[in-house]
Design a protein around this nucleic acid. Structure first.
Lengths: 291, 291
DNA sequence: TCATTGCTATCGGTTAAACCGATTGATCAT
DNA sequence: ATGATCAATCGGTTTAACCGATAGCAATGA
């Protein structure tokens, strides 16, 4: 039994005339006759009564017709959902993002979801390691992070934009009046920093070591939002990329001088896997919102 | 797209390994690879991600899988219902019967319906002409009647049993004490007969004419049940085949002498049409109940 | 580091079956 | 009667499903 035969059968049942059905189906009458016969042999029952030069459905044919129609409809539905997927009328998008880039994501999610309301978005926060692991097993479609990867890896990265590290302070804080601050001066400030293992933190540590600095880290935590809340109390300062503080108008960012503090926000894909159209559309949207 | 390809796709999605799936499907790996590719080309989307030596479903593949499974299930259901039909676990039976044979039918319907409870029985009462017309357009599966047809017709008849015509009287009626009654004596009796056009009536008229008799028909009606009810009042007698009075123990039948009064109950099929298994089973049951 | 294994894609050739045109036999309308 | 119309059947052709062999690539282990 093949879908082809079901199509033939359905059309024949509709017009109850082999010759006409064959024309409709763009096959010869003999072929149609053969194919119907084949179907009848497989089911071991007559689907049509051949009475004189007329044919009509048998009870079996009538019962079977329903199922044949349904089967065909299912394949049409299957095709349709794939077309919908291509036009972003359905589907899902799983985004992995490191904490430092979450602020950036919000705007894009809002406009993407407005443009493609049928697509279900799931955002997965985590460390770079966690996210790359999930990327490998296709739990997420791509990762937004500050991570730079070796080129010969299973991953493929693409830079989105540069973002400088800056001291983040509350306006009431004493250093808030400074235009810039030298990296060495950080030693004199009460810092709350992302926990070790966090990408930005690790990057910072490297910079500190290189400059022989050991700032006083009073608080460490693994949640950027809470970190910024602490800074908002005015008791602590922190160091983050400018991008991480986007949308926090009640905080001040002070450029740090004396070290190379440029970080590159990037998007990372798993090599060789099919890229969802939704994923491509989303990243294009991110990029257009940056520039 | 063919069911074959859907089967291949489903199995491959289940084991996520072309080689293994090909073995399960008893085809070569190369064939499977080709067929999946063909399916992907038709849908214009990748169904599997080939990452290294592993494969996994894409979002499209995952969505499509549901529909592929459903389509296949529908064909299985279609096959199943036909198997059920063969085993008389489903289906319908449409019986045409003339009024004179309705009494006979009751018992068989009871036992048939007990044996094959899933089969829906519809009984169509009518005149022979009506019923043959319905037989022609497959509204009914066969006709039970006293009608004899010309052999060269589109119909095919088969005799079930002989049934003599008899005078039907109520025990309180004066003639009830007679063992037999001559056809000529019918003239002296108040008769209630089936309406003209009814098979038995037409047959009777022929017999009357041949014997130069013109009995006094006081009542004519087109419902055997009501006719017998009238006879039960004791005011009228009627003439019917013995078979028609089956189950009416409160009525007496008196054989009529002097004319050829044997009628043949028969079953009539439409030539060349597929005979439902249920119809065959039913008629076998009728015949076994007769003898 | 290099061979080995395990996997999919592709190539050329074979085979099965879908397909066609022509014909037959039958029914139906004129 | 006769021509028109329809489905079934018969060879012959063509399409495409299928196979084995092999290439190419990743994962694994020595």
């Amino acid at each position: 039994m093949e879908l082809r035969q079901l199509k033939y059968f359905i059309r024949t049942a509709e017009v109850l005339n082999f010759t006409e059905a064959a024309n409709d189906l763009f096959i010869s009458q003999s072929t149609l006759s053969q194919q119907i016969k084949q179907l009848e042999e497989e089911l071991d029952i007559l689907l049509f009564d051949r009475v004189g030069k007329k044919i009509r459905l048998t009870e079996a044919g009538s019962l079977f017709l329903t199922y044949a129609r349904q089967a065909l409809q299912d394949t049409k539905d299957g095709k349709q959902i794939i077309e919908d997927l291509k036009e972003l009328k359905t589907g899902s998008l799983n985004i992995g993002v490191t904490y430092g880039l979450s602020a950036l994501l919000t705007d894009t999610i809002v406009s993407f979801s407005k443009r493609y309301p049928q697509i279900k978005i799931t955002v997965d926060f985590g460390t770079s390691e966690d996210l790359l692991e999930k990327l490998k097993i296709a739990k997420i479609d791509f990762v937004l992070s500050f991570l730079q990867l070796p080129a010969d890896d299973a991953f493929l990265s693409q830079v989105l934009f540069d973002s400088k590290l800056a001291l983040v302070v509350h306006p009431s804080h004493p250093v808030a009046k400074e235009k810039t601050i030298d990296v060495k001066e950080l030693q004199n400030i009460c810092l709350a920093l992302p926990a070790k293992g966090f990408n930005t933190r690790d990057f910072l540590e490297g910079a500190f070591t290189k400059n022989n600095i050991s700032p006083s880290v009073k608080v460490e935590l693994n949640d950027i939002n809470m970190l910024l809340q602490l800074v908002e109390t005015g008791n602590w300062c922190t160091v983050l990329t400018m991008a991480s503080v986007k949308g926090r108008s009640n905080l001040k960012t002070i450029p740090i001088t004396g070290i190379d503090i440029i970080r590159q926000a990037s998007i990372t894909w798993f090599k060789d896997v099919y890229r969802k159209k939704a994923a491509n559309a989303f990243t294009e949207m991110i990029q257009s919102q940056i520039y």
